[in-house]
Simulated assay, not measured.
Amino acid sequence: MTAIAVLTNLPDSDSAFNLARELVSLRLAACANVLAPATSFYRWEGREEQATEVPVLIKSTRERYPALEAHIKSRHPYSVPEIIAWPLELGSAEYLAWVERESQPI
């Protein structure tokens, strides 16, 4: 198994907290950190935009990613949510083993 980190941004704290709790409760992730609000600058539908968003940093596994992505998309208020993932190549062996163990379906 390969541990991964996944990042998504939500428009408010309530939706970020709800998503984080669901992902851990459903064992799609071992951990989800709701981070401090951030100001995002981006281009959307031909216009430059600025918005306050709440990042959620999720630790899971590559094997659980398809289900995790599907769940985020089903709960996300954006039509095209940011969902990006990268492998965790290095880290505490004990922590990475915990991520893999806690992300497994029951």
Score class of each variant (00 low, 15 high):
74 S>L: 12
36 A>Y: 04
90 L>K: 15
88 L>A: 13
69 E>H: 13
30 A>S: 07
102 E>D: 06
80 V>T: 09
44 W>Q: 08
45 E>T: 09
58 I>Q: 04
94 E>F: 06
20 A>K: 09
99 V>F: 03
40 S>I: 01
90 L>V: 14
55 P>N: 10
67 A>H: 00
31 C>F: 13
95 Y>C: 05
50 Q>F: 04
78 Y>I: 06
46 G>P: 04
96 L>H: 04
87 P>I: 05
43 R>V: 12
105 P>C: 07
35 L>N: 11
81 P>L: 15
90 L>Q: 14
41 F>V: 03
40 S>N: 03
102 E>Q: 12
43 R>M: 06
103 S>I: 03
71 H>S: 12
98 W>E: 00
31 C>V: 15
38 A>M: 06
23 L>K: 01
73 K>H: 07
66 P>F: 15
31 C>K: 09
44 W>L: 05
63 E>T: 14
75 R>E: 03
84 I>K: 04
79 S>R: 08
48 E>T: 12
74 S>F: 08
57 L>D: 00
68 L>G: 00
99 V>K: 02
64 R>L: 05
80 V>P: 00
77 P>F: 04
86 W>G: 13
81 P>R: 07
27 R>P: 14
72 I>M: 13
99 V>I: 10
64 R>K: 09
35 L>S: 13
72 I>W: 11
31 C>I: 08
83 I>Y: 01
46 G>R: 12
54 V>F: 02
54 V>N: 02
35 L>E: 10
82 E>V: 08
40 S>G: 02
24 V>R: 00
92 S>R: 11
56 V>M: 06
52 T>V: 07
58 I>W: 03
25 S>G: 10
72 I>Q: 07
62 R>N: 07
58 I>G: 03
72 I>F: 05
54 V>A: 01
82 E>D: 12
34 V>C: 09
68 L>W: 00
63 E>L: 08
55 P>L: 02
74 S>Y: 04
24 V>Y: 02
44 W>T: 05
20 A>L: 11
96 L>Q: 02
99 V>S: 01
49 E>Y: 08
82 E>M: 15
93 A>T: 02
45 E>A: 09
94 E>Y: 07
45 E>L: 09
105 P>V: 08
101 R>N: 02
90 L>M: 12
60 S>I: 01
40 S>Q: 04
60 S>P: 01
64 R>D: 03
59 K>G: 03
65 Y>A: 00
34 V>Q: 03
72 I>R: 01
28 L>M: 10
86 W>C: 15
92 S>D: 15
96 L>C: 04
47 R>T: 08
61 T>Q: 06
68 L>F: 01
58 I>T: 13
36 A>E: 11
36 A>M: 05
88 L>Q: 11
40 S>C: 06
102 E>S: 07
91 G>V: 12
73 K>G: 01
34 V>G: 03
65 Y>F: 06
49 E>I: 05
42 Y>D: 10
94 E>A: 14
47 R>H: 11
70 A>F: 01
53 E>C: 03
46 G>Q: 08
84 I>Y: 04
74 S>A: 15
34 V>W: 05
64 R>C: 09
22 E>Y: 05
104 Q>Y: 07
25 S>L: 11
22 E>N: 13
75 R>N: 00
20 A>H: 11
70 A>W: 00
101 R>W: 07
71 H>M: 10
71 H>K: 10
32 A>D: 06
